[in-house]
């Protein structure tokens, strides 16, 4: 039952983040890129204020998969790096914590471009 509830929470919270963005897209003229920036920065702010931790504990992947989770990872990374290495962590913490996602995206993008081409729509 506990595992099943994890899925429900992940689904509901992750879906809710998407609904917020969808309302912003449809109700304002904000472009998707602006919304993504807003979500990431919100994640950093909520993470820094210690609020996002509770969402993450509650929703698991429902909090880590949306881009707010990317922002949360940035803030957590900075915090951890400062605790471990001091001031230099301000600069190294964020990107270190998110390196896996960014590096994978870049390398897979290059590989995909080697194999595929854009199609007509």
């Amino acid at each position: 039952m506990g595992i099943f509830l994890d899925y429900v929470y992940a689904f509901a919270v992750g879906g809710a983040f998407c609904v917020v963005a969808q309302i912003l897209i449809d109700k304002t003229k904000l472009t998707p890129a602006r919304i993504l920036v807003a979500f990431v920065v919100s994640g950093v702010v909520l993470g820094g204020m210690g609020i996002y931790k509770y969402i993450a504990d509650f929703a698991g992947a429902g909090a880590s998969v949306p881009l707010t989770g990317f922002g949360y990872a940035l803030s957590e990374g900075v915090k951890k790096a400062i605790d471990e290495k001091g001031a230099i962590g301000i600069l190294t913490g964020g990107l270190s914590a998110t390196a896996a996602g960014i590096a994978t995206s870049m390398v897979l993008a290059l590989l995909t471009a080697l194999i595929f081409k854009s199609k007509n729509k």
């Binding site: 998407c18 609904v19 998969v65």
Partner: peptide, 8 residues
């Protein structure tokens, strides 16, 4: 969005 997070 919910489904993607559940897959995650």
């Amino acid at each position: 969005g919910g489904l993607i997070c559940a897959i995650g």
